[in-house]
């Protein structure tokens, strides 16, 4: 028989409109824990990862496409190690039209990246920054407040990661692997002054 056409997927549109029930993940986790297939608590030597979504996906989030997660970051205060370098994540503001499937794929990519860095011990902490905020300056003998500042290209800081690496070169190598660079964002790498 001839190939009916390997690339022809005439019912592909039926992928749409099926939503994964929210409660199913918790039920599944509970089942696995009841059978002893999951650790109930992470090992103390490993930082606990949590996740959030960055500002450049707010539109998708508002549309219900994301359920509160994108960047995975390490819980504050878990690691007693002192950070050596800071990655400042600047946004691109050009991701409003990203398809839902692509958003979910990026969520996973950030998640995997941060998880791997956390396990290596080089990622200590991180946070996503909300859009709400003010700038403050001392001027004319008083403190003046204004809107959030932006970079030279108009981008705002969307989040940060704190690293513990042996030197700047290693921090650079970690930063180069961050998925943020692949999607229009840019990263400022700064060494923390310990003098």
């Amino acid at each position: 028989m001839t190939d009916p056409n390997e690339d022809d997927t005439p019912l592909f549109s039926l992928q749409d409109g099926v939503e994964l029930p929210d409660a199913l993940s918790n039920r599944t986790v509970q089942s696995l824990q009841n059978r002893g297939l999951l650790q109930e608590n992470p090992a103390p030597s490993s930082p606990r990862i949590r996740r959030f979504h960055p500002g450049w996906l707010l539109a998708a989030s508002a549309a219900g496409l994301l359920i509160g997660s994108l960047f995975p970051v390490v819980e504050r205060g878990v690691s007693p190690k002192a950070p050596t370098h800071l990655l400042v994540l600047h946004g691109s503001n050009n991701d409003r039209n990203v398809a839902p499937d692509e958003i979910m794929r990026r969520v996973q990519e950030y998640t995997v990246w941060a998880s791997n860095q956390g396990q290596s011990g080089e990622l200590l902490s991180g946070e996503k920054l909300a859009n709400a905020g003010k700038s403050l300056r001392f001027s004319n003998d008083q403190i003046e407040t204004g809107p959030l500042g932006s970079g030279v290209d108009g981008s705002q800081i969307e989040g940060f990661f704190l690293l513990d690496t042996k030197d700047l070169a290693r921090a650079m190598n970690v930063a180069k692997t961050c998925p943020h660079l692949q999607y229009g964002g840019w990263i400022e790498l700064r060494e923390i002054d310990r003098r």
Binding site: S25, V29, L32, Q39, E40, R48, S69, M104, T111
Partner: peptide
């Protein structure tokens, strides 16, 4: 680690 977080990443 067979952690819940690791599983949730695969699950998602």
């Amino acid at each position: 680690e067979r952690s819940e977080e690791g599983f949730r990443q695969m699950y998602a």
